[in-house]
């Protein structure tokens, strides 16, 4: 879907992005992570040509984006930034309708789309449709920001640290929303963060950048199990590596297909192991029943299986 071919961007004398080659597959949730100044934002802004690379080619759906009119390219992609940037003089409805209006959608279609998006982002339409941005909390503003980015049903969504200014609870809720939206729409998402927990929670694949270079690109488990170098280890955090792993691995990866009957409320098979451990501690037990997506018994999770590597 998005291909970077040996892409370089310099801000003389600094090289912000240094010969990065990388392919984000269609429908993938790709998270860019790295220390501050590592070139994450620069790399992402080159996708919608807010920044133009000095060297290399970027293709979107096979097309070299240097050949496209920047405005047309941008209208095909959603863009969400940390400071939200809602238009303060427009209502929530008009903010969300920005790109559909630019694309000349008929009024009725825009209105329906706004209603759907308010639902999708769990914003009460009666309360918020005609509100102005200053009447919204930070979390609500960023929900509108995400809705606005999704408005014209873009195939690609670019998000630059969209939740880092929010409190942990609001951030958690919006992360869950993003996972659900990604599942429901199949949009290709490129998401910048410097928070490894967020990356592990959201990503199909994580790209680690340092000093403008791509150091590692792989699924969360691979990043955790085989960090490419010390920078990646630092990003994971050496002390709570185990906890991060528990957050990524699911019950299904450790469940015993036993028929043994275990009492208590069962766990879903796709729950993270972290949740399983928390349940074991809370219930004072070392084994829990597990059910599959349709609620049928799928076996038993033993503490000893969680602890073994």
């Amino acid at each position: 879907m998005i291909t970077f071919e040996r892409v370089t961007k310099r801000f003389e004398p600094w090289t912000a992005v240094d010969g990065v080659s990388l392919t984000v597959e269609a429908g993938e949730f790709c998270v860019l992570i790295g220390p501050s100044g590592s070139g994450k934002s620069t790399l992402m802004k080159m996708v919608n040509r807010l920044i133009v690379p000095d060297e290399g080619t970027i293709r979107v759906g096979g097309e070299d984006i240097a050949m496209l009119r920047p405005e047309d390219l941008r209208r095909r992609m959603g863009y969400v930034i940390q400071n939200v940037g809602l238009f303060p003089h427009w209502t929530v409805e008009r903010n969300i309708a920005t790109v559909p209006t630019l694309l000349g959608w008929p009024k009725a279609r825009v209105r329906d789309r706004v209603s759907d998006l308010l639902d999708l982002l769990k914003l009460d339409a009666r309360r918020f449709r005609d509100a102005y941005p200053h009447q919204l909390s930070g979390g609500q503003q960023q929900r509108v920001g995400v809705a606005r980015a999704l408005a014209a049903e873009p195939a690609i969504l670019l998000m630059d640290e969209p939740f880092s200014a929010l409190d942990p609870i609001t951030r958690g809720a919006l992360q869950a929303e993003m996972t659900a939206i990604h599942k429901a729409t199949g949009t290709t998402i490129v998401f910048v963060t410097h928070d490894m927990d967020e990356a592990l929670k959201l990503a199909n694949r994580i790209a680690v950048l340092d000093h403008g270079r791509l150091i590692q690109f792989g699924p969360p488990l691979e990043i955790l199990h085989r960090p490419a170098n010390d920078t990646v280890r630092d990003l994971i955090g050496r002390e709570d590596w185990g906890l991060k792993l528990l957050a990524v691995e699911t019950v299904g990866q450790r469940v015993r297909p036993d028929v043994e009957k275990v009492p208590g409320a069962p766990l879903p098979i796709d729950a993270p192991l972290r949740q399983a451990i928390a349940e074991m501690v809370a219930r004072g037990t070392d084994r829990l029943p597990v059910v599959d997506a349709r609620g049928r018994p799928a076996g038993v999770l033993h503490l000893s299986d969680v602890v073994r590597s």
């Binding site: 919608n48 807010l50 920047p70 405005e71 047309d72 390219l73 941008r74 209208r75 863009y79 930034i81 400071n83 939200v84 940037g85 809602l86 238009f87 303060p88 003089h89 920005t98 790109v99 630019l102 920001g145 606005r148 670019l158």
Partner: peptide, 25 residues
């Protein structure tokens, strides 16, 4: 606010649209 300008550009507004629809009001 610079975030508003960046968002306008990122949404695909032309320079003219950014000026007339965002900056002027």
């Amino acid at each position: 606010p610079s975030a508003v300008r960046e968002a306008a550009r990122g949404m695909g507004m032309t320079k003219r649209q950014i000026f007339l629809k965002v900056e002027v009001p």
